[in-house]
Design a protein around this nucleic acid. Structure first.
Length: 899
RNA sequence: GCCCGGGUGGCGAAAUGGUAGACGCGGGGGACUUAAAAUCCCCUGUCUUCGGACGUGCGGGUUCAAGUCCCGCCCUGGGCACCA
C-alpha cells in the first residue's frame, strides 16, 4: 500500500488534539503572531470547497510563524446568530438554538478533518450566553458614552457637561440632554415592512418579495441607532497605516464619502415662527448665483409647515405616494432619468442676490444626506437640469469654461448642464474667479454675513442597530414607566432570550420578543427592550474575545489584549470590505477611547481571498443560449476529447455545451463538497490544491484533474521516504547521513530560499511549485535523499501538507511533532552555482546564451564577460561586419549588443 | 454612470523593465505488465523554405530591452449608484 491518507490523517489529528499542540498562551518572552479568519456563519449546508481556501492560507501562515519562533494565536469560532436559523424555526418548529448547534457540529467536524492548527480551546460562538453577555456589555459602553468633539473621543456619559439652564429644569431635563448625546439613541427610522409576511426586510430582499406579489411599505419604527458618523473622519484618517488591499481602502473611503463644501442659509419668504430658515449643503457654493429653486426631501420636517393651502392636497398626495414607492421603484425611475416633484407654494430668498426662488419637494432629494434639502442649480448639475426641464423652471449659467478649454464656445446650459469647473460668470462678487477660488471667496462672504459657513459632509449615516427578530442578542435595556430608558445593570448580564413558541413578529410589526410577556414585564412596571441586535454585533468584537475567551469577569483581560492585539493577518472574503470592517473598526475606536483596548485599529494586514468557482454547462449555440435559460450540471454531461481540446455534450441529447464558471451556490448546483474530496484524496491534497490553483486573491475554477495532480505529488514525496513492496507493509527507506550529493545540497538550499521567500509573500502556488521541483529532481536523478535533506524537506512541506509532513518526519526517527521545529535557513554559499547563464542579445533579440564560470564575478568582470559575448558565435553571426553602437551589460543576466 | 480588479498555450497559471510560458492539468509517444490500473521517461505556444519569423485583449508611445511603464480603446469580474 502506498501513500495512505485515510490512515495518516486521522492519526495526526488525534495526536495534535491529545497533545494540545496548537494551544496558545500569553508568553511575553516570545513575539506573537495573531492570524485570524473571518469566522463563518454555520449554515445548514455545511462547508463547500470555497471556505477552506482562506482557512488554508491562514493555517499555512500560522504553522510557518510557529516554526519561526512566533507565539501564534490562531482561533476559530462561529458567527451563529442569523436569519436562516430563525426562518428554519418558523418552518419546522425546531428552536434556532438547536438548529444552530447542529450546524456548528457539522462545520466543526469538517474543519477538523482539514487539519487546521486552530487552538480549539478558544472556540467561541456568538450565540453562547457567555459570549453575548459581553456583546451586551460593549453595547452598554457605547450607550453609556458621548462624543466629546473638543477632545475628539468618546467619554462616559457621566462626564458630559450639563449646561446650567438644562440643570435648572430638573432631573428629567438632564436625562433627556444626556440621552440626546449618547452614542446609542432611539430614533424613528423608516424600515421596509412587509405586512403579508410580518417581517422587516433588508433592502436587498425587497425586490424579491415585491416580485412575489407582497406589498412592502416604508414605515417608521422605533429603532436603536449608533452614532458611527461621529467617527467618520477618524475612520478615514486611520486607514492610512493599514496594510490592506487598495481596493478595500478605496471602498471604505467612498462609503464614508467625505465631501467639502458649504452650508448655506436661505431665509423663507413667509416667516413661520422659528422655522424661518432653510439650510442646505452644497459642494458648489460658487454656483449660488445660479440657484433658481430649492428642493426638500418629501420626508423633510419643514414640508408640513411651509406648504401653502393651495398646494396642500398635491403635496400630501406626493408625500404619501413616495412612502408607498419601494426603493426599487424609485431607483428604476431614477435610472430612466424621470424626475417627479410638487411645488410647495412657498418661496425662499437667495442670500447672495435676494432673489425669490420657489421651494419644491421631490424624491430625488434624500432625507438622509446633508440637510435633506438642496439649492438647485440646473445650469450646472445634471439632476437639477433634468428636474428643471421637466418642471419648466428657469436655468441660468453662472460658470463658463476656463479660457483655453476646448469646446468652450459651444456651452449652452439650456440644453445641457455644465457640471465641470471653470470660471464664475453672472455671479457678482466672484465674477471671473476660477471655481476653486470662487468657492473659497463666496464661502468667506457667507460666513462674514452670517449666511453660512464652510462645512464637511459625509455620506456615512448613523448605524441602524436594531432588528425585529428573535435570534439575536437582546438589548440590555429597560423602559421605565416614566419613559426613562435604563441599563439592566452589568450584574444582570447576560440578558438571555426567553423561550417562545412563535418566532414571528406581531401583526403590527412588533418584534417576536414583545409577545413573551413574562419576560418583557418586570415587577416594578418596567418593560424590557424587545428589539434584538443585528448579526454584525457579535462579529464586531470576536477578535478581542479570542484573546481571552474563557474570562468570566471581563470581556478580556488587558494583559491578553495588550499582548495579542492587533490582529497581524486577517483573511476573508471581499464581500465584507465595507460593512463588517467598518463596524468593527468603529466599535474598536469606541473601546479605544474608553481605554478598553490599546490599539487604534484592530486589523493590521488584510487579505481578501478569491472565490472558488464551480462548473455548470450551458448550450454552446449562441442562438439557443439567448433563449430560455437551460443549465446542466456535471453528471448530465459527457466530455469529448478532440485532439488537445475538450468538448462537452449533453449525455442524452448530444447537444454541444460550453462550460461556465460561477461562484459556488446550492441553487446553481455547482457546489463541491469537501467531504468527498477528502474521502478520495485526503485533506493534505485538498489543502495543497486550494493553494496551488492560483494566487490567493484571485478567483479560480475548481478542476478535479488538478486535485489529482496534487495527490500524485504527495505520493511521489511519500515514495522518497517509503518503499511499498507488493506483498508486504510499507517500509522506510534507509537514508544516507547528511544532505546528500553536492547537487542535491544546492537544490535543497535553493528550495529553502524559494519556499521561504514565497511563503513570506503569501505566493503559495509558487511555493508549492518549488517543492514539486525538488521532489521531481531527486526522483529523476534516482537519488537517495540525504537524511538531513529529508528532514528539511519535511519542514518545508509541513505548513502545506501537515499530516504527511508529520508522518515522514516520524519515519526519520523523530518522536515529537515538527510543529515547533525551527524553519530551515538556506546556506548562501549553496545558492551560488559553478556557472551562470549569460543571455546574449543583438538589438534586443535573444540570440543565444553562454555559460560563464562563477570565477568571473558578474559585477566585477564586466569587460571579460562582454568580450566573451562579443566573441561568441551567436553574437558574431548577427552582428556580422557591422560595428556595435552600444553594448549593454546587465550584471549576471545578459549582454545586449546594439548595431 | 462612477470606483476598484483582471485579460498570457487546449486549461489553472509563472515571470525585481532583462531568456515569455516555471509548476500543474490535459494531449501525444514510449517503458514496465500476459493485460489493465498504478508508476516512470520523452515531447507538447503558432508558423516555418529548418536559416528563422511571429507570439502576453486591440492601437499608439517611452526604452538598448515592455506581459511589466505611459496614452487611447475593447472585453470581463466585483463594488457603489439621484450623495447635492
Amino acid at each position: 500500500m502506498s501513500y495512505d491518507h485515510a490512515t495518516i490523517e486521522p492519526r495526526w489529528q488525534a495526536f495534535w488534539d491529545e497533545h494540545e499542540t496548537f494551544k496558545a498562551e500569553v508568553d511575553r518572552t516570545r513575539p506573537k503572531y495573531y492570524v485570524l479568519d473571518m469566522f463563518p456563519y454555520p449554515s445548514g449546508s455545511g462547508l463547500h470547497v470555497g471556505h477552506p481556501e482562506g482557512y488554508t492560507a491562514t493555517d499555512i501562515m500560522a504553522r510557518y510563524k510557529r516554526m519561526n519562533g512566533f507565539n501564534v494565536l490562531h482561533p476559530m469560532g462561529w458567527d451563529s446568530f442569523g436569519l436562516p436559523a430563525e426562518r428554519y424555526a418558523m418552518k419546522t418548529g425546531t428552536h434556532p438554538r438547536d438548529r444552530t448547534y447542529e450546524c456548528i457540529d457539522n462545520f466543526k467536524r469538517q474543519l477538523k478533518m482539514l487539519g487546521f492548527s486552530y487552538d480549539w480551546s478558544r472556540e467561541i460562538a456568538t450565540t453562547d450566553p457567555e459570549y453575548f453577555k459581553w456583546t451586551q456589555w460593549i453595547f452598554l459602553q457605547v450607550w453609556g458614552s458621548w462624543y466629546d468633539q473638543d477632545q475628539g473621543k468618546a467619554r462616559p456619559i457621566a462626564e458630559l457637561p450639563i449646561p446650567a439652564q438644562v440643570q435648572a429644569q430638573g432631573e428629567a431635563a438632564v436625562r433627556a440632554y444626556q440621552d440626546e448625546h449618547r452614542l446609542a439613541y432611539l430614533h424613528d427610522a423608516p424600515v421596509n415592512w412587509c405586512p403579508d409576511l410580518r417581517v422587516v426586510l433588508a433592502n436587498e430582499e425587497v425586490a424579491e418579495q415585491v416580485e412575489a406579489g407582497h406589498e412592502v411599505i416604508r414605515v417608521p419604527m422605533h429603532q436603536w441607532m449608533l452614532k458611527i458618523t461621529k467617527y467618520a473622519q477618524r475612520l478615514i484618517d486611520d486607514l492610512e497605516d493599514l496594510d490592506w488591499p487598495t481596493s478595500v481602502l478605496e471602498m471604505q473611503r467612498n462609503w464614508i464619502g467625505r465631501s467639502e463644501g458649504a452650508e448655506v442659509v436661505f431665509e423663507l419668504e413667509a416667516k413661520q415662527g422659528p422655522a424661518s430658515q432653510l439650510r442646505v449643503f452644497t459642494t458648489r457654493p460658487d454656483t449660488l448665483f445660479g440657484a433658481t429653486y430649492m428642493v426638500l426631501a418629501p420626508e423633510h420636517p419643514l414640508v408640513e409647515t411651509i406648504t401653502t393651502a393651495a398646494q396642500r392636497d398635491a403635496i400630501q398626495a406626493y408625500v404619501a405616494s413616495t412612502a408607498h414607492r419601494t426603493e426599487r421603484e424609485r431607483q428604476a425611475a431614477a435610472a430612466e432619468g424621470d424626475k417627479t416633484g410638487v411645488f410647495t407654494g412657498a418661496y425662499a430668498i437667495n442670500p447672495v442676490n435676494d432673489q425669490r426662488i420657489p421651494i419644491w419637494i421631490a424624491d430625488y432629494v434624500l432625507m438622509g444626506y446633508g440637510t435633506g434639502a438642496i439649492m438647485a442649480v440646473p445650469g450646472h448639475d445634471v439632476r437639477d437640469h433634468a428636474f428643471a426641464t421637466t418642471m419648466g423652471l428657469p436655468i441660468v449659467q453662472v460658470v463658463a469654461p476656463a479660457p483655453g478649454d476646448s469646446g468652450g464656445d459651444s456651452i449652452n446650459v439650456q440644453a445641457q448642464a455644465y457640471p465641470e469647473p471653470g470660471v464664475a460668470v453672472n455671479s457678482g462678487l466672484i465674477n471671473d474667479l476660477p471655481t476653486a477660488e470662487a468657492k473659497a471667496k463666496i464661502t468667506q462672504w457667507l460666513a462674514d454675513n452670517g449666511k453660512g459657513e464652510a462645512r464637511i459632509n459625509y455620506k456615512l449615516r448613523d448605524w441602524l442597530f436594531s432588528r425585529q427578530r428573535y435570534w439575536g442578542e437582546p438589548f440590555p435595556l429597560i423602559h421605565k414607566p416614566s419613559g426613562e430608558v435604563a441599563s439592566v445593570g452589568v450584574d444582570a448580564l447576560p440578558v438571555e432570550l426567553p423561550e417562545v413558541e412563535d418566532f414571528n413578529p406581531s401583526e403590527t410589526g412588533e418584534p417576536p420578543l414583545a409577545k413573551a410577556l413574562a419576560w418583557v414585564e418586570l415587577p416594578d412596571g418596567s418593560r424590557r427592550e424587545t428589539n434584538t441586535m443585528p448579526q454584525w454585533a457579535g462579529s464586531c468584537w470576536y477578535y478581542l474575545r479570542f484573546c481571552d475567551p474563557r474570562n468570566a469577569d471581563a470581556p478580556w483581560s488587558s494583559e491578553a489584549e495588550q499582548y495579542w492585539m492587533p490582529v497581524d493577518l486577517y483573511v476573508g472574503g471581499a464581500e465584507h470590505a465595507v460593512l463588517h470592517l467598518l463596524y468593527a473598526r468603529f466599535w474598536h475606536k469606541v473601546l479605544f477611547d474608553l481605554g478598553h483596548v490599546s490599539t487604534r485599529e484592530p486589523f493590521q494586514k488584510l487579505v481578501n481571498q478569491g472565490m472558488v468557482l464551480g462548473a455548470t454547462y450551458v448550450p454552446r449555440d449562441p442562438q439557443v443560449a439567448a433563449g430560455p435559460k437551460r443549465v446542466f450540471v456535471g453528471d448530465e454531461i459527457e466530455e469529448v476529447q478532440l485532439g488537445d481540446v475538450v468538448e462537452y455534450v449533453h449525455k442524452q441529447t448530444r447537444e454541444p455545451l460550453t462550460i461556465q464558471w460561477d461562484k459556488m451556490s446550492k441553487s446553481r448546483g455547482n457546489v463541491v463538497n469537501p467531504d468527498e474530496v477528502i474521502a478520495e484524496y485526503g485533506a493534505d491534497t485538498m489543502r495543497l490544491y486550494e493553494m496551488f490553483m492560483g494566487p490567493l486573491e484571485a478567483s479560480a475554477p475548481w478542476q478535479p484533474e488538478g486535485v489529482a495532480g496534487c495527490f500524485r505529488f504527495l505520493g511521489r514525496a511519500y515514495r522518497l521516504f517509503f518503499e511499498s513492496p507488493k506483498d508486504a507493509e510499507d517500509r522506510a527507506r534507509t537514508l544516507a547521513q547528511g544532505e546528500g550529493s553536492e547537487r542535491q545540497r544546492r537544490l535543497l538550499h535553493r528550495t529553502i530560499a524559494e519556499v521561504t521567500e514565497r511563503v513570506e509573500r503569501m505566493a503559495f502556488n509558487t511555493a508549492i511549485s518549488s517543492l514539486m521541483v525538488f521532489v521531481r529532481d531527486i526522483e529523476k536523478n534516482d537519488e537517495t535523499l540525504g537524511r538531513d535533506a529529508a528532514g528539511i524537506f519535511c519542514q518545508l512541506l509541513a505548513p502545506f501538507a501537515p499530516h504527511l509532513a508529520e508522518e515522514l518526519w516520524r519515519a526519520l526517527g523523530n518522536s515529537a511533532s515538527l510543529t515547533y521545529e525551527p524553519w530551515p535557513k538556506a546556506d548562501p554559499a549553496m545558492l551560488v552555482a559553478d556557472t551562470w547563464t549569460l543571455v546574449l542579445q543583438v538589438n534586443g533579440k535573444r540570440r543565444g546564451e553562454l555559460e560563464i564560470p562563477a570565477s568571473l564575478d558578474p559585477k566585477q568582470a564586466k569587460d571579460e564577460i562582454t568580450a566573451l559575448a562579443m566573441a561568441s558565435e551567436a553574437v558574431s553571426r548577427f552582428v556580422g561586419d557591422k560595428s556595435p553602437k552600444r553594448v549593454i551589460y546587465v550584471p549576471g543576466r545578459l549582454v545586449n549588443v546594439v548595431v
